[in-house]
Amino acid sequence: MDKQAFMSELEYRLRRLPEDDKRDALDYYYEYIDDMNLAPGEDVCMRIGTPKEVAFEIIAQTTQRVMDDENYDRRSAKSVGSVLKLVLLGIFAAPIALPLVIVMVVLFVALLIVLGSVVFAFGVTAVTCIVVGVAVAVLSLLAVGLGSKFIVLGAGLVCTGVGVLFMLFTGLIAKVFAAVISGVVRRGASKRVRNMNSTGI
């Protein structure tokens, strides 16, 4: 990327900053690149990084600065809205990582909901079978004739048995799902720690 291309992309990425902050940053980098005395055709990004990275650094620090102003200098309290705007800007201008994190969190919540629903459905089936089975077995006393009594009682007991089997199966899948989720969480956490270690100055 040559100077011209670098500067115009940087300007585009800083477009939501206050005019004064944007101008100052652009002037600084314009001058800086001149001072680097690049050979014709040499890539600007090789040395100072991509416009995206540079813009992210500027926006992140501006956000930090606005917050510091609020903490240390109450008399010039800025509106919460403007801080929020800059934080959001920081998130959306972030190199892929942050949007990706949001997507991952949403996917993770979706996974939780799906697995939870499956366990819930099996559980409800099990409880229903057991309740109905027991009820039928008890009501078999009302059936007319000894033969019918035994048939209805048998049907009730079979139903209860199926319910118990469902219950055991529900416990099993709940355990498996819990293992899957804790695996995902652990992997996510270790990845985050690794990322944090590699981004230190």
């Binding site: 902050d21 940053a25 600084y28 001072d35 100072i48 990275e53 650094e57 620090q61 600065r65």
Partner: peptide, 25 residues
Amino acid sequence: YGYTLTQRMMEVVDISESTLYPVLR
């Protein structure tokens, strides 16, 4: 000015070429 400051500090500590602008600002 920005460029010499950065070069001078880079000789001593591990910073990148884009580290100092936000600090200066």
